[in-house]
Design a protein around this nucleic acid. Structure first.
Ligand SMILES: [Mn+2]
Ligand SMILES: [Mn+2]
Ligand SMILES: [Zn+2]
Ligand SMILES: [Zn+2]
Lengths: 135, 135
DNA sequence: ATATTTTTGCAACATTGTTGCATTTTATGG
DNA sequence: CCATAAAATGCAACAATGTTGCAAAAATAT
């Protein structure tokens, strides 16, 4: 049973190629990286594919400080049915390495945040520094 | 001694108008809000003004999940000289209220995050839920 | 195999932001 | 206050990124 059946979206040659790019990279990737990897292609279809993957909970979007935008496979993320990308619940930290510039989904417990007078439904944490491989 | 002298950037009529929009709003604002508030104006100059303010450490940029981009006055932020926007050190949490849609800089201690094997230089936290006014 | 549904590719458009350059505004200081 | 120098502005043109409508093609269901 492939990932497409599991997520109930149609399996097409194009989508498989895009998905492969995710599998071929250890960390999160940019749309630009996908475009380079899949060669000649249609930009519009790629955008729609990404939206499909996002809606299906196959991948998640990471927006880092400084407008660095990345995409990553969802492994440990929590998803409701058809959860909108904006309300995605990562339960990991996103780490931007200042040296190799990779943006890494680091598996770990999120700290408990408590803001007096506020009701917190979800949190998202970005960290910056030097990653394990670069240290 | 006005804020322009303090930050060593020239005071102009246009910049004063933009700055006033920040003062008139309790929370963070979008570029669109500024454009509406200052009326007929030049889009390019506004972008350059915002960059100037960012470079001067007068304001900071907030990128929330779902590509919500906002700007806010720097009050308690830490700045080195000419610190680039991407490496800005907020020391507060950014809270997005799902009800009023405001993005609020909430003053509070940041938790101590420790990732085994990683060197963390700075962190940024976004929270989502219902704000104090909406509860 | 045929019918139905979804995806794709193309063209056109929208939004957001940038760059070069001539003109205007602001700050300086005699 | 006026002349000068430095910086900010406005315009035009461009660039990057993403969206929409629609006809053709591909994928699934019967
Ligand atoms: Mn996810
Ligand atoms: Mn700041
Ligand atoms: Zn992630
Ligand atoms: Zn803030």
């Amino acid at each position: 049973m492939g990932i497409f059946e599991k997520k109930d979206i149609r399996k097409t040659a194009f989508r498989q190629k895009v998905l492969d790019v995710f599998y071929q990279n250890e960390n999160s990737i940019t749309i630009g990286q996908i475009e380079t990897a899949i060669g000649k292609h249609d930009r519009i279809t790629l955008y729609r594919t990404i939206k499909t993957f996002l809606d299906a909970g196959l991948i998640h979007e990471i927006v880092m400080p400084g407008d660095v935008k990345k995409l990553a496979l969802c492994n440990d993320c929590e998803h409701g049915p058809n959860e909108h990308a904006a309300h995605h619940q990562h339960n990991h930290i996103h780490f931007h390495c200042a040296q190799c510039q990779e943006v890494i989904c680091v598996d770990n417990e999120l700290p408990n945040i408590d803001l007096e007078g506020y009701q917190i439904d979800s949190i998202e944490i970005q960290a910056r520094g030097v990653c394990a491989s670069c240290l």
